[in-house]
Design a binder for these strands. Structure first.
Length: 259
DNA sequence: ATTGTGGCCTGCCCGC
DNA sequence: TGCGGGCAGGCCACAA
């Protein structure tokens, strides 16, 4: 599914749109428009504007234009296409089919080409001037001290805290399981009981996982991924993995070494 | 205030 | 062979 790595890949693709002027806006799916806007509003807001920069905060992709900011969210099955080219061919938990009927939002550029958000399950969305400040600091750039602050004073399960986008923006279910597995930390540990040494280890691991899985090609390329199934075993020590719901999400962890 | 839960959306897979 | 139930999780509304 799209997590911070995939959204960053989308952002790099969206760089192709910088400097181009929007000739037309296609918003066929009212459900996909968030923040109380309708198709007319989004068409009026962006038609004739020029895309100036791309930004990302966590899983939120923003296109700054000469008018308002266009905010794009991808849910768990959303993909981005620019000039007909997809940034990512195949997405975990999404369909491998590539059906234009799933196009929920699109921009046409002056001189040809365009940008399309294709989302089978319609869990993504489009927003005008999204409130990115409501999100926590970006997981890819936060420092160790920042991560300590994210965890401090919370009795919530460690995993739930890491996935709370208002506290820390970008991590989804697969990345979080991989990071905690490599960090040897139990996902259900109360966040405020992770000590200073462990926070440093967690931070170091998070950075390494993001850099490494970005190079490998996505959130689903973690070392734990192949064993994220009911009969999975820990790739490190061979113990049967534990399968639980943590923070409302299916969680795999090793009872042997994640403490 | 914080933390937890249920529902939304839809394609796919499994078992009958 | 077709059908139905369960599952996936990012996000939000709502409850405690």
């Amino acid at each position: 599914m799209p997590e911070i790595l995939e959204i960053e890949t989308y952002r790099r693709l969206a760089e192709l749109a910088v400097g181009r002027t929007i000739a037309g806006v296609s918003a066929p799916d009212a459900w996909f428009l968030k923040g109380g806007i309708d198709a007319g509003a989004v068409i009026d807001a962006f038609t004739g504007t020029t895309i100036e920069t791309t930004r990302r905060r966590g899983k939120l992709l923003m296109l700054d234009t000469s008018g308002p900011v266009l905010g794009l969210r991808f849910g768990m099955t959303g993909r981005l296409l620019v000039d007909g080219e997809a940034a990512i061919d195949s997405l975990e938990y999404s369909s491998d089919r590539n059906d234009p009927a799933w196009d929920r939002f699109g921009l046409d550029f002056v001189g040809g080409g365009g940008l399309v958000l294709r989302d089978p399950r319609r869990l993504g969305g489009v927003e005008i001037n999204p409130d990115d400040e409501a999100l926590g600091p970006d997981a890819w750039s936060i420092g160790a001290a920042g991560l300590r602050d994210v965890l401090a004073g919370s009795k919530a399960p460690l995993k739930a805290r890491l996935m709370d986008q208002k506290r820390l923006a970008g991590l989804g279910n697969l990345l979080t399981d991989e990071i905690l597995w490599r960090s040897a930390l139990d996902p259900v540990r109360p966040a405020n009981e992770v000590d200073a040494t462990e926070v440093k280890r967690l931070h170091r691991t998070m950075r390494r996982v993001l850099d490494q899985l970005d190079e490998r090609g996505g959130s689903h390329q973690g070392d734990l991924q192949d064993q994220r199934s009911r009969d999975g075993v820990c790739p490190r020590d061979g113990a049967p993995l534990e399968r639980r719901k943590v923070g409302g999400r299916t969680t795999y962890s090793c009872p042997q070494h994640q403490l």
